[in-house]
């Protein structure tokens, strides 16, 4: 690394260390703080680039970078004590309607692309006995580039995105051990566990390869995110 790069990295780390502890128990308060953090980072491509480049030689972050069926993710900061895991969500394909909640509350800042965002209500238990016909959309909104949204971990929703929709995500520590998911098209109901509860085999499956990591850095630069 050049001394300029080192200086930039040190400045970026110092800024990240100065971020606050987030009170996720009060979602309105958490939204106010995390949406400003999201803007502070997302509106500064050079800073974001420095943080993403740092992931390459920060093994504890690099090993958290993953590829999933619909999204890839690059984790750029993880401070569980302050309630701050910050990552890029990278939509990798056309999405389908997969109603889900989360293990954590979060703020998403859309840096490129857009979501069609739908919130759902249900009278069903959130387990294998759920009748997928009884999940009703009650709020549908286009979330354009530049929009910030904050969601409680219990909220059922879908975000349908175009490929390469990029979001900066700030998420709370886990609030529960597994997230609930349904696919309305075929009635499939399943769960997503946290990394700590996944098998070694599953961890190997989802870990982002170096090739994929480089692909995303190139695409993020081309999209003007970095």
């Amino acid at each position: 690394m050049t001394s300029l790069t080192t200086d930039r990295t040190q400045a970026a780390v110092s800024l990240m260390e100065s971020l606050p502890a987030v009170n996720w128990d009060d979602i309105e308060s958490a939204a106010e703080v995390t949406e400003r953090i999201a803007h502070r980072l997302g509106d500064d491509p050079e800073l974001l680039n420095t943080l993403v480049e740092r992931v390459r030689y920060t093994p504890e972050l690099r090993e958290k970078c993953e590829c999933h069926a619909l999204d890839d993710k690059i984790v750029i900061w993880d401070d569980q004590e302050k309630g701050l895991r910050i990552r890029l969500r990278l939509a990798n394909t056309d999405q389908y309607e997969r109603v889900h909640n989360h293990r954590y509350s979060f703020t998403a800042y859309i840096l490129s692309g857009a979501y069609r965002h739908t919130l759902y209500a249900t009278d069903q238990p959130l387990d294998e006995t759920a009748d997928v016909e009884r999940f009703w959309p009650y709020f549908v909104r286009e979330e354009p580039q530049g929009r910030c949204i904050t969601l409680d971990h219990e909220q059922l929703h879908t975000t349908i995105t175009e490929p390469e929709t990029i979001s900066l995500m700030i998420q709370s520590p886990a609030r529960k051990s597994r997230a609930f998911m349904i696919r309305r098209a075929d009635g499939h109901v399943w769960w997503r566990l946290g990394a700590a509860e996944e098998s070694e085999e599953r961890r190997r499956e989802v870990r982002m390869t170096d090739e994929r990591f480089e692909h995303w850095i190139g695409r993020l630069k081309a999209l003007g995110v970095l």
């Binding site: 100065s18 971020l19 606050p20 502890a21 009170n23 009060d26 308060s29 106010e32 703080v33």
Partner: peptide, 12 residues
């Protein structure tokens, strides 16, 4: 308070 980094905010 909030140590100038907003561990707490006015809303609190």
């Amino acid at each position: 308070g909030g140590f100038w980094r907003h561990d707490r905010i006015a809303r609190d």
